[in-house]
Amino acid sequence: MKRYLKIFTAGLISDNPLLMLMIGLCSALAVTNNMANGIGMGLAMTFVLLCSEVIISMFRKLIPNSIRIPIFIIVIAAFTTIVDLSMKAWTPALSEAMGVFIPLIVVNCIIMGRVEAFSSKEGVFACVIDSIGMGLGYTWVLLGIAAIRELLGDGKILGFQIMPDSYQPILFFTLPPGGFLVFALFISMNIWLKKLIDNAGARAGKSGKEAVA
């Protein structure tokens, strides 16, 4: 049980795909200029990650090592297309806003990375936990970055006006450079959080209690 908890929490902070592993950044920076896109992208990505990890973990003994990468891509591409078509059919507004980034989940390094590094070696249950942890880790970062960028760059949260009318939106934050700046701040904040957790764990370990992290 403790092992699964560790796999789950790894994705949130200490092995966060965006802030620690630094993979899958391009689409993450591109879609975070407002929160609705962040939610959509996070959920779409988590779904594809979960399905791909489970399928590949189930068939990991049947996949020959020499052609594992093409097979991974087929599996990932199939689930991405399913998400793309479903979003077009049932949430057309969201699909329009996300544009090309949904099809691009296929080449998102987070999925490729987790499938190659984790689910091609681990059991199905561990993969479910890992993909949910990684997916949530990805989603919370997207939401955080998007909230700051939308609030400062547009004066809104989820499309609702938050800032007073006299507020002049700082356009910089909705543009790519603003994305990089906020992203960098998140990286440093995450390192600080990780240190806090590690320190708490070390202290708890010293006094003979169980580690929290």
């Binding site: 049947l62 996949i63 020959p64 052609i67 093409p70 097979i71 087929i74």
Partner: peptide, 11 residues
């Protein structure tokens, strides 16, 4: 042939 068949099956 073996690898081709496996790839085909997945596709």
């Amino acid at each position: 042939i073996r690898l081709g068949l496996i790839l085909t099956a997945f596709t």
